[in-house]
Amino acid sequence: MKKPLSIAVKRMLRRGMAALCAFACVFAVSACGADDADGRIRIGIKFDQPGLGFKKNGTYVGFDVDVAKYIARKLGYSEDQIVWKEAPSKQREAMLQNGDVDFIVATYSITDERKRVVSFAGPYFVAGQDLLVRKDEKGIDGPEDLNGKRLCSVTGSTSAVTVKEKFANEVQLMEQPGYAECATALFSGIVDAVTTDDIILAGLASASRGRLRVVGKPFTQEYYGVGIKKGNTKLARNINNAISEMIKDGSWKRAIADNTKGVDYTPDAKYNPPKPKEGEK
């Protein structure tokens, strides 16, 4: 006849089982990823960039959104399995590192500094930093006219960094949390121009109904990548294949045209469409 277990032993067993269960849960989540946990995929986009990533009456529209939907479909997810997460510029790296999203499509320029903490797939688009001005502006025809001007860009963006590096002694830079705030400052005359990537400015100009215009003299190249967790080469390869298919079947070109209607904008043919090879090694 077996002796009954002592209360102390029972407690030890319960604690051991609890610890084992906790370990199993952590292992399962880390092994499967956030998307496998409930059959959905979490994608970071901008919510405040007309023409790219914009939240409108509970729906999400823009070129980045179209790219993200295409990638998700090729990864095996329907549109109703996508959970959209807002990804402000200064929070993108943390969102990927913390596992808040599976990937980010949010005008996310590939830079060596960012690649130290996250990885990228792509690029899916090559933009160029440009200037957005009021329709009747006569004194700004390019970056050579910025001396003494007031510019607005977004905190944490590569555009703001470029202004500080190239025009620090020439311009007054106002940094805002989003481009909608910059556009408002431009409308009200607080700043003379908004500076960021040309396709972002084209979206803002389209939304302004003719009140704003893009100068059309880009002075950088910005390679937009799909942000993913550091070292995930398999996901990078799958995303790159999806981008290549989007370019090949014409969906890429249609998405740009659909999201820049009413604006005289054409991507720089010297760099577009790009060849997505980032992150595979």
Rank of each mutant, 00 (worst) to 15 (best):
R237I: 07
V161Y: 08
K149G: 05
C152G: 07
P218C: 11
F120N: 04
N241C: 04
G122I: 09
P177F: 06
S208N: 05
K135Y: 13
E165T: 13
R150H: 12
T162G: 01
V154R: 02
G210L: 15
V215H: 08
E113Q: 06
N238C: 12
G231K: 11
E137C: 06
A183F: 03
E113I: 00
L212D: 06
A236K: 06
G231V: 01
K135I: 13
I200A: 12
I190E: 11
K234D: 15
Y224E: 06
A236T: 04
D145P: 00
L201E: 15
A121I: 02
D145G: 02
V161H: 06
N238G: 08
L132P: 03
V154M: 09
V161R: 09
F125G: 01
V215T: 05
N238T: 15
Q172T: 14
K166G: 00
Q129Y: 04
G139P: 10
V163A: 00
A193N: 08
K234N: 12
A127E: 11
E222W: 08
D192T: 10
G225F: 08
D141N: 15
S159I: 07
I200V: 15
R134E: 03
V191P: 04
F219G: 04
Q129M: 14
V161N: 00
G178K: 15
L204G: 07
N241I: 13
S157P: 06
Q176H: 10
C182S: 02
K149Y: 10
G156Q: 08
T220M: 11
S153G: 11
N238R: 15
R213M: 14
V191Y: 12
K234Q: 11
C152R: 01
P143E: 12
Q221P: 08
N241H: 07
I140C: 11
Y179A: 10
T162I: 04
D145W: 01
I140H: 04
D130P: 02
V126I: 12
C182M: 12
K115C: 00
A183C: 02
E222Y: 07
Q221W: 09
T233H: 12
V215A: 10
A183P: 04
L151Y: 02
R209D: 14
L201Y: 03
Q221G: 01
P123C: 01
A183S: 09
N240Q: 10
